[in-house]
Design a protein around this nucleic acid. Structure first.
Lengths: 234, 234
DNA sequence: TGTATTTTATTTGTCGACAAAAAATCGACA
DNA sequence: TGTCGATTTTTTGTCGACAAATAAAATACA
């Protein structure tokens, strides 16, 4: 080990800076640590990560490309708002992608995919058992992302992952307010879906995914209809 | 007019630089002026556009986010290749998005949308009449993008526009090689689709879009099956 | 002549600084 | 005291330069 002097800068590897900033900022946005509308200060971030504004800006450009932050020209950039008015477009897209990716997984998966999927499902079940809302949100997204991967269509997985990200923000809001009452039935529904995928039953996979997705959507919708105040809060 | 001295730099407006580079580079990639695999040199671009590397790099980061260029860490960046091996995933996604966006347009369009759509269709018809392959490719993408806009689902339009972009590259290859023989029937098919949309007949819109999309896919597939050499060329 | 190793050149990632644009502050005037 | 306009401050977009990483060239050696 060279550089025994602890006062030296952490000496990040060249090129790793952007990735670190991008991923951490992304997580903070999706977990609502940075709530929608939060201003993003480049100088502040540069100071925080001990690097110049250049890599910070590159990370921000990427996040903007994914729609996670909004950038006003020559002016402030902030965490993208959740568009409650057009929530139905999100639900439409989510339901369709749930169906398509699950169906394709049933058709095109390989044996090793099932192992990965089951591992994610186990993690989700553990989170549900522990009543850990945050872990449930994260593991649920990871599970469905893994299912989509097994379908092997990068165009669908790309959109689906974006939707799951946006969903993480919405679900976060959902659970935060409702005091972590968690529907255990999702575990069983996941089991049925995985069984259909493993059996290569595309029709059943599609049907189960549709029911699963629509039920999630329904729960969130009833939640929001009971909490109009949220419209004002943002 | 100030700045009568022609030797002065063009004096671009602050912030417009990235946009210019991004859009021009994008068009060149989609029109195969920059063929897949072309190396992209930042210095060269900086010189060409008379600006520093910083805005160039920002444009490249955006293009990379859309998958139009591939960036090797610390090494060269090049125009993304067309993935002929997994072309079917592209077709699957394209057909589905054709259907969904057209159906949503039939359901959610407003009267003014139809005006815009018909204007695009007129341009497409003119291009087809003139046997202008390049114009046909561009106006076809613009028409379907306009239809998708009328459906008002940003998630679907986002993916669809990406697919149409990738389709522009593929069609460009198609027409280039086949000496600009252009199927006029697309004009009629478009007319039928627009009529179904205007009549708010979602079922018909879906059916017509499916047939339209599958026919395009079929044509491209038979083309590629007759030209295996392309696999080698890339 | 062919291969390994050092040297040079090219290109990328990062930095600090400056200039333009917008917002925030201050001050004149009613 | 309130409003409009000028001034200062903050923040963004761009620049030129430098250093790390890689590729290319040159050299040494068998």
């Amino acid at each position: 080990m060279t550089n025994t002097d602890a006062s030296f800068p952490p000496e990040r590897k060249r090129g790793s800076g952007v990735k670190v900033v991008y991923e951490l900022l992304r997580d903070e946005i999706l977990d609502l640590v940075l709530p929608p509308g939060s201003p993003i200060d480049e100088l502040q971030l540069a100071e925080r990560f001990k690097m110049s504004r250049t890599p910070i800006r590159e990370a921000l450009v990427r996040l903007a490309g994914e729609g996670l932050i909004d950038t006003l020209p020559n002016r402030s950039t902030m965490v993208a708002n959740i568009d409650f008015l057009n929530m139905h477009t999100f639900f439409d897209a989510l339901v369709l992608m749930y169906r398509v990716t699950t169906k394709l997984a049933a058709q095109y998966h390989r044996p090793e995919d099932i192992v990965i999927i089951r591992a994610h499902q186990a993690r989700f079940a553990a989170a549900a058992e522990a009543q850990d809302a945050l872990a449930m949100i994260a593991t649920n997204a990871a599970l469905h992302s893994a299912i989509a991967d097994a379908g092997r269509n990068p165009y669908f997985t790309g959109l689906f992952n974006r939707l799951l990200d946006e969903g993480r923000r919405i679900l976060r809001l959902y659970y935060q307010s409702y005091g972590d009452r968690l529907p255990k039935q999702f575990v069983d529904e996941h089991e049925d879906m995985i069984a259909a995928i493993a059996a290569r039953d595309a029709e059943a996979a599609d049907r189960l995914a549709k029911a699963h997705a629509e039920q999630i959507v329904k729960q969130i919708q009833t939640f929001f209809s009971r909490n109009e105040r949220i419209d004002i809060a943002l």
